[in-house]
Design a protein around this nucleic acid. Structure first.
Lengths: 221, 221
DNA sequence: GTCTATAAATAGATAGAC
DNA sequence: GTCTATCTATTTATAGAC
């Protein structure tokens, strides 16, 4: 699916602040890194398509084009594979959040991020994890690169939310945490997929519909 | 969890219009029916707690207190179990929708239904199915009692949505189908669970928060 | 219809040669 | 590190006695 205006930048090389420090790599190590990047990218796509439970390690190996045993030389478990994919998208999110123009109004910053996450989902790059998988949650909670990214993004968005509430552009009655959760939830909102399957609207139209209903509500203004 | 004002009525006996006609049952058949109701209720709870993939048939049998083989005498597959649970909630939804006072404004009717679905989720009675499970979808699409219920509810809600848009209480710019999808999506919105885990708000407060953000939007009015 | 016991299939993970 | 072949555990589903 060709992404036009809303295409999220994919800064593979950029290292968002707070992540593990990059190290000089030998040629051999760069090859290894590239291979693992290809694996994680495949996992990311499969997670977006089928979700964690339905994705099998055999599928991943077949899609990457290597044997399953080789895959386990790179990642020790299925959870680790999914975790690596989550770290990847979290890095992208961090990178995007830090590219949002400083001068913009807080509300517009939040809308930019919401549009970016929705574009990510519509382009089939948003991994979907089950909310109730203990082993996966345990792995994620033991992945500092993920947790740090999540905290960084949450802090930034939280600051924008409070600023927007201070100026009265976001409803001050809503607890900031509820607004933050709503932003995260919209990133994996099934409404996007439903509308996409309907085939009546372009990606951009779908994004604007959901942005409108999310920020302005269903009732008329 | 005690439900107070928002407790959804559970009309086990009521038969919403459009479902298979009820038949006079012998005592033996009534016992069978009761057993199956207990099974479906258990499945419903487990589906709400863990989701379809994480729920095992062994768990269901253990929770009901019968052998697994006995379970398969009642329902031919795991998909059929989940399907029966979906038919159950769809019947409840149908019944509730038909109890909504006729004289109410369309917008208020929609809010009533939204509140009901959210209360259902908060009380741990909303089955959660994976969006991408083909075998399960096939079973559901082959279950007339479910499809008819879904169509009935969708038609009713769709009528209210169009009426609300005609009077200008719901944003006429939004396609009715998008509004309908949004209503359905809010019924399984993860924001509810997040806020519940936070422990800072009562069920009623959580429902009103999400109702507010859904209908009035995140931005101030 | 209910049970115990078991089949059959799937999927995560590993052994060991190269 | 990559491969083939295999192990092991889990889980859906069924056979057959009562």
């Amino acid at each position: 699916m060709p992404q036009t205006q809303l295409s999220p930048p994919t800064p593979q090389s950029a290292t968002p602040p707070g992540t593990s420090a990059p190290v000089r790599l030998s040629f051999r190590e760069q090859m290894l890194q590239a291979r693992e990047d290809a694996i994680v990218q495949t996992v990311n796509r499969l997670l977006a398509e089928k979700g964690f439970d339905a994705m099998t390690v055999d599928e991943v190996a077949a899609a990457v084009g290597i044997a399953k045993a080789s895959l386990y030389k790179h990642f020790p478990s299925k959870e680790a594979l999914a975790s690596a994919a989550m770290v990847r998208v979290m890095r992208q999110a961090q990178a995007f959040v830090h590219t949002v123009p400083e001068g913009l109004a807080p509300l517009d910053k939040l809308k930019m991020v919401a549009r970016w996450t929705m574009a990510l989902q519509l382009s089939g790059e948003m991994p979907s994890l089950p909310s109730h998988n203990s082993s996966l949650r345990a792995t994620l909670m033991d992945t500092p690169d993920y947790l740090n990214g999540l905290m960084d993004v949450s802090d930034t968005l939280g600051g924008w939310i409070e600023a927007a509430q201070a100026t009265g552009s976001i409803n001050p009655q809503l607890p900031p945490i509820a607004v933050l959760y709503t932003m995260y939830a919209r990133a994996c909102d099934p409404v996007l997929e439903f509308l996409q399957l309907g085939g009546q609207h372009s990606h951009d139209e779908i994004v604007e519909l959901v942005i409108s209903s999310c920020f302005d509500g269903l009732t008329a203004r």
